[in-house]
């Protein structure tokens, strides 16, 4: 799936954690490509490996995790072939990240303005104080934060303000890719929406690509140009966001996610939860990881693990969809 024009290419990446129980495959043979200026939304339930994927892209995996297969390249440069020094200069300049909680990423004992300056001190040592100051103020106005807040400490700002500042910091060096791991999860619904609009607006101005990670399908479909659905470390469905909500087919897991979003129907709310329990990544079931929870599962699903195949405008890793497509094709 390597695409020469893509900003981010993830090629058959597999990440495992060594844990007390054994090897956990948190990211399992994932391939992705994000084109310049596109927003890829990654959605899936808790523990499916979204954050691990984000960390793998940033080469920020925890010490007991390893990218054991595959390649991850940003702007055509393999993140895992860089020396520590190259990586230090590459990260943030070309690919940056927004974390779930800015309270943990902003240093509590340093005013936010000072932390902003540090980014430029490290990456743009030739810039003068005045230039840096001007640049920071531009960035802040982009996320609609008043420059006087620069002298504040993180705990003196609201969650929404902190997240805006974190976004401004992420785009400080004009990266081509920003990875956002649940950037709005710690915020209330109204602020969440504001931040999403902010991201979209800034993204339209700056044209950076985004990997937007969330467990909330509505948020993802609101902001993304492409949507990838993850289950048990695998991408089970990926397609353009434009058609996503109205698409004819969905992977049974995606369908479950869609059904679990509250809908206002004639009789009021209907919510359907996905039955069964989340998968065990250390002792994966044989066959398709989703089959124990899938109502459409048949013998093929128990025997082997499906791989992503194009059906219509999307790609699915589902034997049932393939079968139905084949039946249609053959009459």
């Amino acid at each position: 799936m390597s695409d020469d024009t893509a900003i981010l290419t993830v090629d058959h990446a597999t990440v495992v954690y060594g844990s007390e129980a054994g090897l956990a495959q948190a990211v399992n043979d994932v391939s992705l490509a994000v084109a310049p200026g596109h927003i890829l939304g990654v959605v899936g339930e808790s523990g499916c490996g979204k954050s691990t994927l984000a960390q793998a892209i940033m080469r920020l995996l925890s010490p007991n995790a390893a990218l054991v297969e595959g390649r991850i390249a940003v702007r055509g440069r393999d993140m895992y072939r860089m020396s520590e020094n190259e990586l230090r200069m590459f990260r943030w300049k070309h690919v940056s990240m927004v974390f779930q909680s800015a309270l943990v990423t902003l240093n509590p004992v340093i005013p936010v303005g000072k932390q902003f300056q540090e980014i430029f001190q490290i990456h743009e040592p030739t810039m003068s104080q005045v230039q840096v100051r001007k640049r920071i103020e531009e960035l802040l106005s982009l996320v609609r934060i008043h420059p006087q807040n620069l002298s504040n400490y993180a705990h003196e700002l609201s969650g929404g303000m902190r997240q805006r500042i974190a976004i401004a910091m992420a785009i400080a060096l004009d990266p081509v890719l920003v990875v956002m791991d649940e950037p709005t999860t710690a915020l209330d619904a109204v602020v969440q929406r504001e931040i999403l609009d902010e991201i979209r607006r800034i993204q339209e101005i700056k044209r950076f690509a985004v990997v937007f990670i969330s467990h909330d399908l509505r948020l993802v479909s609101y902001i993304s140009t492409e949507i990838a659905v993850m289950y048990a470390g695998k991408i089970v469905e990926v397609g353009s966001a434009h058609h996503f909500m109205a698409a004819a087919h969905h992977h049974p897991y995606t369908q479950g996610l869609l059904d679990s979003v509250p809908k206002l129907s004639g009789e009021g709310f209907t919510i359907r939860a996905i039955p069964g329990s989340p998968p065990d990544l250390v002792h994966p079931v044989r066959g398709c990881a989703f089959h124990p929870r899938c109502s459409a599962a048949y013998d093929a699903c128990l025997a082997a693990s499906p791989i992503l195949r194009s059906v219509g405008s999307s790609k699915f890793a589902c034997f049932d969809i393939e079968r139905r497509e084949n039946e249609k094709a053959h009459g």
Partner: peptide
């Protein structure tokens, strides 16, 4: 504990052994 018993090298080796 994890750092000393589960180094990245060991994980990669365990994976390839598998």
């Amino acid at each position: 504990r994890q750092m000393s018993t589960l180094s990245r090298d060991r994980i990669v080796r365990a994976w390839h052994a598998l």
